[in-house]
């Protein structure tokens, strides 16, 4: 199957570090980090991304805008997108799913749950 590339878009350095160390436990995974929506958009054409994990609340382009962009762009519309959200942001999660996000996790989550979820989408791809 080859190495899978996961793009993490989150403006929190500590969250990215934690997500990276969680995902590195998965087999054959390469992590690409973006600290903003813009950075994610710039990385998408450069990296062959297999899955996107995105925060909603980011400066410049937020997660919803990123999802909308990806789903409207034929190059990225099939890449699975998982939202990382926070308790109490139900409305934004709903919108994200409406825009075409595949799944979501709510902070605080158990790293194992995220690993399982990702594995599911990566295997499917």
């Amino acid at each position: 199957m080859g190495t899978k590339t996961i793009l993490i878009a989150d403006d929190s350095r500590a969250m990215r570090a934690m997500l990276t160390s969680t995902l590195e436990a998965l087999d054959d995974c390469r992590i690409v980090e973006a600290s903003s929506g813009f950075e994610a958009m710039r990385l998408l054409p450069r990296e062959k991304v297999d899955l996107v994990l995105t925060d909603i609340n980011m400066p410049d382009i937020n997660g919803l805008e990123l999802i909308s962009y990806m789903r409207n762009n034929p190059n990225y519309q099939d890449i699975p997108i998982i939202i990382i959200s926070t308790e109490g942001s139900q409305k934004d999660i709903e919108r994200g799913k409406l825009l075409g996000a595949n799944d979501y996790v709510v902070k605080p989550f158990d790293p194992a749950t995220l690993q399982e979820l990702l594995q599911k989408y990566l295997n499917r791809a």
């Binding site: 403006d11 500590a14 609340n57 926070t86 308790e87 902070k107 605080p108």
Partner: peptide, 12 residues
Amino acid sequence: AHSLKGLAGMFG
């Protein structure tokens, strides 16, 4: 405040 909430939640 939102970021801190998520962060603090994740780190326990």
